[in-house]
């Protein structure tokens, strides 16, 4: 794997998702599927074979009425950085079909390179990676509505959320043509971010002080999923509820949830 280090223009794209705002409507999932030509089948009963780059989980505090509380947790690919780009999936792929882009912090998936060993899926604790068990077949006429900027995937390969990388490429091209050095915050936004009616998802460069996520990730109540594993993800969640924050990681009975700095 060739790593391009440092230099100007290095970004670290990520998300901050406010779980107190998420209503679980699923708009992000729908937008993601439409934007990224995610295939589906006539019968999607078996959710363990459904491809959902963005998946909304329903969490509950497990308490009886009237203390029952629920929380919806949208889970895209967490784009783990691990330590120095050593994310769980990238390091295990035998054919270099997935890579950590140190220019953007995005974990890529090269569909034509993947031969479907599924080792990356075994490595990912978030179930963010999906295998194409079937050939992608769209209802007649729907091919015309596919996004021309995203290649559909073939049977037998793994796919996952790309943080709408094609939008990044388009934004980069536009910035170049407009003579701008930097990509504006609103020039590159993921489909799920734009689709969320509650405004729960914020997307941007986590390292750029001018981007909203830079500040949001530092607010009280911010945490990341399974932080203790050292996956070093780029998706932050925020909740004012302690039980929600605790549900973001595993703790021994004697431990309290760690405060995220």
């Amino acid at each position: 794997m060739k790593q391009e280090h440092g230099g100007n223009g290095t970004r670290k794209y990520g998300m901050v998702i406010d779980l107190d705002l998420c209503t679980g409507c699923g708009s992000c999932m729908v937008a993601c599927m439409a934007e990224n030509n995610v295939p589906f089948r006539e019968d999607e009963t078996d959710k363990l074979k459904s491809i959902t780059w963005m998946r909304v989980y329903k969490l509950t505090n497990g308490k009886p009425y009237p203390e029952t509380d629920i929380c919806y947790l949208p889970r895209p690919c967490q784009h783990c950085e691990g330590s120095h780009g050593h994310s769980p999936c990238v390091s295990v792929c035998p054919a270099t079909a997935t890579d950590y882009d140190s220019q953007t912090g995005i974990v890529s998936q090269i569909y034509t390179r993947c031969f479907g060993c599924r080792y990356c899926m075994a490595a990912c604790p978030y179930h963010a990676r999906y295998f194409n068990w079937y050939d992608p077949i769209w209802p007649e006429g729907m091919e015309k509505y596919l996004n021309p900027n995203v290649s559909p995937r073939m049977r037998g390969v793994v796919e996952k959320c790309s943080f709408c990388f094609h939008r990044y490429q388009a934004a980069k091209d536009k910035a170049y043509l407009d003579g701008q050095k930097e990509i504006e915050e609103d020039a590159y936004q993921t489909a799920c971010t734009q689709a969320c009616p509650a405004g729960a998802i914020t997307f941007g460069d986590l390292d750029n002080p001018d981007h909203a996520v830079h500040k949001l990730k530092k607010q009280p109540g911010a945490f990341r999923l399974l932080e203790r594993l050292g996956t070093n993800t780029k998706v932050y969640y925020v909740s004012s509820r302690e039980w929600v924050r605790r549900a973001g990681d595993n703790y021994l009975k004697t431990e309290g949830p760690k405060k995220v700095v």
């Binding site: 390179r113 031969f115 479907g116 073939m154 037998g156 390969v157």
Partner: peptide, 11 residues
């Protein structure tokens, strides 16, 4: 076991 047997040589 691999999803794309014809690409096995990629490994």
């Amino acid at each position: 076991d691999i999803g794309q047997p014809l690409r096995g040589w990629f490994i």
